[in-house]
Amino acid sequence: MLTYIDKIRQIAEGFLKEGTVDMVIGFRRGTLPLMNEPCLIKRPEDVKKLVWDSNCGINLANYLTNRKEKIGIVAKGCDSRNIVNHIIENKIKREQLFIIGVPCKGMIDRHAIEALFPSEIEEVVEDESRIVVTGGGVEQIWSKAEVLQENCTICIHRNPVVYDELVADLVVEQKDVDRYEDIRRIEGISPEEKRDYFNDLLSSCIRCYACRNACPLCYCPTCFVDASRPQWVGKSQDPTDIETFHFLRAFHCAGRCTDCGACERACPMGIKVRVLTKKLEKDCLELFDWETGMDVEKRAPLRTYSPDDPDDMIR
């Protein structure tokens, strides 16, 4: 994946010099290890800031909403699906975009590394298959496969769905992945156990809304959690309010979520918020045969009606 950097810079520089785009959205090295940050490059001489490694988990589609400029964007599999979703929802036009497709091999789970590493992380170096973490005089080596984000280990769309240029050959997609093992386990337990599970899961939530802000789907001018007339959800730390927030956040992503993992990555408390969005994703797949962001022409299940929509819950 590291070899992508030169190619990304080269394409971005070309685009900017030709004036094909006004800016390129990509990643630059973050101020902390494991946390690359998004950046907007507007001048050809700045393209050397662009990087690519296994810490680019943030979803760049988030920065496209309602933009008017012509944009070059670096997109891995999930980003590209979110870009498609943005196009479907008229948040950006396909003609504005020049998509630099990046076949992805998965991003590293920063929460996992932080939990596993005994000291403060000072430096992270990676090669094709391993990452070396150093800090506080300690050095530890993991193979990348061990510390991937959970959504990346079960990812079945690593290659971008839409792109104008590719930085490398497409990677082999993972086959026969059991994407919903954990969801089925929760579905199988009793209502009381489910309540305990979710109370426990969400108990550490501090209502910072980082999951919402990181999510490319959450672009409403006024989010329901900020609305005060009417106030849909209390602003307290009451477990019910927290539960309502997470429930609705997930539900607003129904049929739109690509399981990019940005929410979970952003969570400062390490809450596995994807448990909720993934359930909806599973239902969309099973009930409506729907996968988000695969086709610009198709509309999401909650936006369409068909006489054969499942309706066995209605009497």
Binding site: F224, W232, V233, G234, T240, T244, F247, L248, F251
Partner: peptide, 10 residues
């Protein structure tokens, strides 16, 4: 709106 249901439950 789903919020109606949630509000009633809450």
């Amino acid at each position: 709106n789903p919020m109606f249901i949630l509000t009633a439950l809450r």
